[in-house]
Write a protein that binds this DNA or RNA. Structure first.
Lengths: 355, 355
DNA sequence: CTGATTTCCGAAACCGGTTTCGGCAAGTGT
DNA sequence: ACACTTGCCGAAACCGGTTTCGGAAATCAG
């Protein structure tokens, strides 16, 4: 074993810099440094500044798990993906994660992701994450009408934020895009083109968004002074195949619609297929407006007119809201909604003339 | 303030059970419990069993961040997504994450995910994650020929595992699907159908997979005794648009091919479009074999013949390998490859007869 | 039966932070 | 000039684990 002189610095030089190092460099104690770093009021401004400068200079970064042992918080956001969910969410995943990560890391937080393949597995996953203190709060994508995640976390008194809105708002913070507004605007747009028989193909009815978008569609029909034909309304279409099936049913009615509003882009692509099989040209014989803004829509023939959602921005907002929620901010200030962006492409046109 | 009798248990009953609780319940010290839980050799088997039983009974789970303070390890795997990457990776993301999560959680580990939007941002992200001890090792999807992530982590002496293989194998563990084998088999399959002029559309050349698949294509052509025409080879096609562009170029040659092998499914969908514009029917006038197994391929007209990759399984293997790597297992045992699965659908057919 | 090893476990230090408590010095009121 | 605050910081306990060290009891060799 090598004998070092006075043991001044025999440990390897590149070991991590701790709070003790900062304290020593300033002739303070680590308690003072800790309080200065965390902005406690019983530290003079001068000292606080000195400490923060030195911390910066020495590039001191407290270990979140060392803090967690006392504070119980890891500075980590939890996200549990549900794969049983329809594929329609997958194209958004990368953007969404990018947003969450960006929002989190801008505040020095990280993202802990887990996947579950069944309802029970999902519950277990949440519980394991909580038990191990792996997340200080959760982002819940795709709010459901009856959401077991909300029940679980509310009971456990764990902060969370919804992507989507819920009826039972107690304890819920959220971010959402106003799908109902988009659906209403879609109808108004079609009505302004002369359409009077307008169909509606909704998404998964267990999700909160479906009720909202349906309400928006109905509202739009009323505002436009149009009658709603129940035969022109379909549900639970979240894939292209779903959309094609439902659309075929609607288009083969006695009095088919001249336009269809879809709650989900993928369903609209199914409408394209169904229309083609019925010999209808999209944008001429049949107008379509949808919602989501998937890339495939832009490349479809004709390009799909839709209401686009910025999932990256949503991720950023959600992580920011959750962090504020964890920090104890008031719920009322943690509820945000934005409008979807109308992207007018080629799948709509004036109502076809009878012949 | 309420005065409690003897202070026996005045704290709320549902506080987390700690190692001390287990120790007390057994009349042991926490050091003994710790060593028993971690399988140290200086604990009698009888005691170890007693401890583990009691831990189970009391549902004691050590806090990973409390352990980390001493061990430096959080039981967490890191994944840094690169969004500058082409979209072709996105459809796989959900499956891949599910696999990673499954593999990790089966060993009691978790997944920390971050996203980066530029090369510099990526480097910073890795460094921040390391500095904060947020990950004990990393999964590196899409191995690149010159991979800055490998350089970084190798220098920092941080465990990692590649999805893909690298030329510079020093310090690299990996899991990969044998793309070169698939490309060779694709050629052989087409040759057995009588095709002699076979084109090849490769993917992103900065990725390791592209060289391998190209080598596989060449090998296949040689094995089949076919000549390679450089005019029938294209590169860097990872999206449908790329594929269409490259395919158009190839199909408008003097002597166009009767079949095309694509390194990437998305490119193949572009070939569909280009072929349709050239008046060629896929599966009749032009055969196509691709690679990846994206869902869109199954729904294309005709359904795309391809080599399918199980990204969920890949995720499971990768997380398992990384955990073993972190535990110090020998590199030589941490290199796995599997074959892609041939899915023979409708995009191939016998070579068209001249007319 | 004795001395030397092992075997097994407890005591205590430690990891890197946070937080409680208390005390010194300066400021305030009279 | 004196008691009383107030502002600011150090000392030490604490969080929930891991690890070093040492010692008692059990085992072994002779």
């Amino acid at each position: 074993m090598s004998v070092s002189f006075a043991g001044l610095d025999d440990r390897r030089a590149n070991r991590r810099v701790t709070i003790k190092d900062v304290a020593d460099a300033l002739g303070l104690t680590k308690s003072t440094v800790s309080r200065a770093m965390n902005g406690y009021p019983d530290i003079s401004e001068a000292t606080q500044l000195r400490v923060k400068r030195m911390a910066e200079k020495m590039s001191y970064h407290p270990l979140s798990h060392a803090q967690a042992i006392k504070t119980g918080r890891t500075r980590s956001l939890g996200l549990v993906l549900q794969l049983s969910d329809h594929d329609a969410q997958r194209p958004f995943l990368a953007e969404f994660l990018a947003g969450l990560s960006a929002g989190a890391s801008s505040e020095g937080w990280t993202l802990t992701v887990a996947a579950s393949d069944s309802h029970d597995d999902m519950i277990r996953t949440f519980q394991a994450l909580l038990r191990d203190g792996k997340a200080d709060g959760f982002i819940l994508p795709r709010a459901m009408i009856e959401d077991p995640r909300v029940a679980l976390l509310r009971d456990a008194n764990v902060p969370f934020v919804l992507f989507g809105r819920q009826n039972d708002t107690a304890g819920c913070a959220w971010f959402d895009v106003l799908g109902e507004e988009a659906m209403r605007d879609a109808v108004m747009h079609l009505a302004s083109l002369g359409h009077r028989r307008i169909g509606f193909i909704n998404g998964g009815m267990k999700y909160a968004y479906a009720s909202l978008r349906e309400a928006g569609f109905i509202q739009g029909m009323q505002d436009a002074g149009l009658a709603i034909d129940p035969n022109l309304i379909g549900q639970n279409a979240v894939t292209q195949a779903d959309g094609a099936r439902v659309a075929t049913k609607i288009l083969t009615q006695q009095k088919p619609p001249t336009a269809i509003v879809c709650a989900v882009d993928f369903a609209a692509l199914g409408v394209y297929r169904a229309a083609s099989e019925c010999g209808l040209r999209i944008g001429h014989d049949l107008s379509v407006v949808a919602y989501d803004g998937i890339p495939e829509g832009a490349h479809a023939q004709p390009p799909l007119t839709t209401f686009s959602v910025d999932n990256r921005a949503a991720g950023i907002r959600l992580s920011t809201l959750l962090i504020r929620r964890i920090r104890g901010e008031d719920l009322a200030t943690l509820r945000e909604t934005v409008s979807a962006q109308f992207v007018d492409r080629g799948s709509t046109g004036p109502v076809p003339t009878m012949n």
